[in-house]
Write a protein that binds this DNA or RNA. Structure first.
Lengths: 187, 187, 187, 187
DNA sequence: GATGAATGAGACTTCATTCAT
DNA sequence: TATGAATGAAGTCTCATTCAT
């Protein structure tokens, strides 16, 4: 029982640091220090830095996921739901700006592991189904592709906003994103 | 003049390696070897790894820029131009999948340098004007924001495509992107 | 009594792993796992890795000793006995190729312990008396030295055979060893 | 030129330390210190600990080889040559007692490397031809096997002598070894 | 008797950078 | 201009051992 709590503490510390400064810029030493544990203790709970990063990433994603779901649940209209998703996604991305870089680096490591991508695909598909349904109802020509693009847009926004944040306000970006993603031939 | 040629050879080698394997995964040693020069020689031409990476990145961006301009130039209709840009951007991104990661890592370093971002902003603004004009002509509500979003979409696509390439074809993605970005209230 | 049984299980597992992969390449963690016990439990039964290794080594040697004795017992002629010893020794050595490395590593640790070698000397002398007697009967000039050399040959064979096993067959080696060790000036 | 000299200095220091305390008990840090170079400098000259150990081992073997050859060269009779070889081999082994352990550990690493054993086989075969010829002239039944056994005996002697040195004198051991290895059916 | 979390020292290795030649 | 030897800091990971429960 004590172990589980420590593990949780480590993951939290790792998530925080990784989101702030990406994978390569954070050392295990530092994570240990922040989690109030020894370096050796870290490796007792996680076999490698990659494995820890993966769990930290999932932890972050799940927070985001729960946030999105909870915002969508009470809503009824399709468009409201889409707006809620865009709203929440952009917010999350702004909140932890370096998150996507961290994401990317763990992804890259995953590419080298056998079946390393399965975790991400599983997680992603869960939300993609929701998005696809929304775009189908809206009358998008290719709901699947559009869902993919929204995902990409959010990720890319995280990247670009970090650098060019003075060129556009988040509010404007959200609005315009909503506009183009609700575009349908029937409208 | 001989120095200039060597410098160019180094930049080319660096760009190739960096876009294949990102910043942190490529060592100066390796770049030197690939450029057919010694490690010492490398530092003779570039004061640091970051400085080399910056120039290598600009080199890559300029190639992309010239490609886009040359594709747009002969076209007349606004929509054709937009399609050409989307087409070229996605192609470029696919071609060097790790490019955006490389981009991001150099960005991060730039954040720490005084006025480090200026060079990227200058480069970016040059193409953003073109995009903004296009979206204005199309009748977008917020052309500036939309231009920003297209940039973000392309960057994000590079990221996600690396991992989820089997979920959507590049062709479909391009088409759907074109559809939503040409969306206007007046249509 | 239950403690004794657990201890035996640990020793068996340790011996197996050590003779497969030598002392330094086997961790206490792994031994624990293979013995179906926790790491803490392991240290409950043995105060240190060295102490466990020592007992595991003795366990292996005793198996070998009993095997040799049982093969010799029914035999009558001196030469038959010598052949049986050579035969059994080579077989044992082939069976657990890394055994002599394990042996050596525990030896080295023993060198650092006060009276650490006593246990090996006691074990060894027991079998050396038998060998010496045999060589005395055969008419060797220096039976004690010859006994020592046979011991060395077997150990060295274990070493070399690991690397150069395709240069000579075990059968040929046994036969030639028998030939030279039965050599006497009186024959 | 300066590099070669440093490399030689490193190999010498490594050989000395490894012979005294075997592979795992010597750290790169220590070798660096003894060679008067930084840890990083070590890796500039040798890509890994294993590779350094391999070269250090070869360095030691070559010293031994040259010693043996120079002792044999002036001799005429076959028996004198064999005696010289046994004499030199035992001397060498006594001189650097832990050498064989070091040998063994580098061997084991070699087993894991692709074609890792080729170096040793090449070295060994060079001296085995000489031994085989000698035993053929002596009239041994299986000269090849006997040569193998002499090699094994020397290696095993190094092992055992380390532990049981008070049981037999080197001089006696040499003499008895000479006796049994010159045994022939025709005598 | 037994568990497994935790420690802390130490190992190998990488790499940007400097500098004598 | 160019070389490559040398540095030193930092990084990931292993492991025997201890100890509260």
């Amino acid at each position: 029982m004590k172990g589980e709590e420590t593990k949780r503490r480590i993951i939290k510390a790792a998530f925080k640091l990784f989101s702030e400064r990406s994978y390569h810029k954070v050392s295990m030493e530092e994570i240990a220090r922040n989690a109030g544990i020894s370096k050796g203790g870290l490796f007792h709970h996680f076999p490698s830095k990659y494995e820890l990063a993966k769990e930290a990433l999932l932890y972050g994603l799940e927070i985001w996921g729960r946030e999105v779901i909870s915002r969508i649940q009470p809503l009824e209209s399709t468009e409201e739901k889409l707006w809620a998703i865009i709203d929440a996604s952009f917010d999350f991305v702004i909140q932890s700006l370096k998150f996507s870089h961290f994401f990317l680096e763990v992804y890259e490591e995953s590419l080298r592991q056998k079946n390393g991508l399965d975790v991400w695909k599983a997680f992603r598909s869960q939300y993609f189904r929701i998005l696809e349904d929304i775009f189908r109802e809206i009358g998008a020509e290719n709901p699947r592709a559009r869902a993919f693009l929204l995902g990409a847009l959010v990720d890319g926004f995280a990247l670009d906003y970090m650098v060019f944040r003075d060129e556009v306000s988040v509010k404007e970006a959200k609005k315009e994103a909503f506009r183009i993603f609700t575009c349908s031939k029937r409208s």
